[in-house]
């Protein structure tokens, strides 16, 4: 069964008096455990596609399946549940809740899921160590660097072991060394936990990590390369 399947997605935005086709009959199929990069210039439709997969945005037409379950026709609450239980998110910026510490941010999703506290602490400690933030568990986001913040976000995204992690320009605000470390982390998690990754980026170096590279332009897929055998 594929982790993500999109069938004939269309989405049009109105900008001023112009209609912009953000998604123009897009169909993709992502197998479990794949490490996919979506690459497109600004306005190429990659964020829209990512949001559609994540159930953050409803396409005008077409179908979206997560682990075989159709999600484009669900209501807000059901979508929230899908996101909570199946998907981890890493956004470009403003990833963390400012009033919570690193550990509390990592535990946030688990807490809303209702995971008991002992298990939460075990998991968050382990994952924070894995992303190299041991000793910084009690810092608030404002007391951490951009790279550290993104690592907390990654830790949160994978802590509850979602089947799918969606990341939108995760390296945009990072220097190249930190970006490399982050991608190494993604790769490692992908390999260790068999987590499916879909990363939207226009960062060339990020693309080199990807097993599969999907290029988009004006809302259409123009290229779909399998860089490594998945």
């Amino acid at each position: 069964m594929s982790a993500v399947r999109c069938v004939d997605l269309c989405k049009t935005y109105r900008q001023g008096d112009q209609d912009i086709k953000a998604l123009d009959h897009v169909s993709i199929d992502i197998a479990k455990g794949q490490f996919v990069c979506l690459s497109a210039p600004s306005g190429g439709g990659k964020t829209t596609l990512l949001n559609a997969i994540g159930g953050l945005d409803i396409p005008d037409s077409g179908e979206v399946y997560i682990a075989g379950e159709r999600i484009d026709n669900l209501n807000k609450g059901e979508l929230a549940d899908i996101r909570l239980k199946q998907i981890g998110f890493v956004f470009q910026a403003y990833n963390l809740i400012p009033v919570l510490s690193a550990r509390e941010n990592v535990e946030f999703v688990m807490q809303v899921q209702g995971v008991p506290s002992a298990e939460r602490i075990k998991k968050s400690t382990a994952i924070l160590k894995e992303v190299g933030l041991e000793g910084l568990e009690d810092r608030r986001p404002a007391e951490m660097s951009g790279g550290q913040q993104q690592r907390v976000a990654v830790a949160r995204a994978v802590a509850s072991r979602p089947a799918l992690v969606l990341a939108d320009e995760p390296t945009a605000n990072l220097d190249s060394k930190t970006a490399d470390e982050l991608m190494a982390l993604f790769t490692e998690l992908n390999e260790h936990h068999n987590t499916t990754f879909v990363i939207a980026t226009h960062d060339q170096r990020v693309m080199t990590y990807a097993g599969r590279l999907i290029r988009m332009l004006d809302g259409r897929i123009v290229d779909d390369i399998n860089q490594r055998a998945a």
Binding site: G77, A80, D81, I82, R83, I87, F89, N95, I97
Partner: peptide, 16 residues
Amino acid sequence: VREIGLMLALGMKPGS
């Protein structure tokens, strides 16, 4: 606004 958006995106229900 942004944090609220984030919490919603992470799967927190509007009721929460």
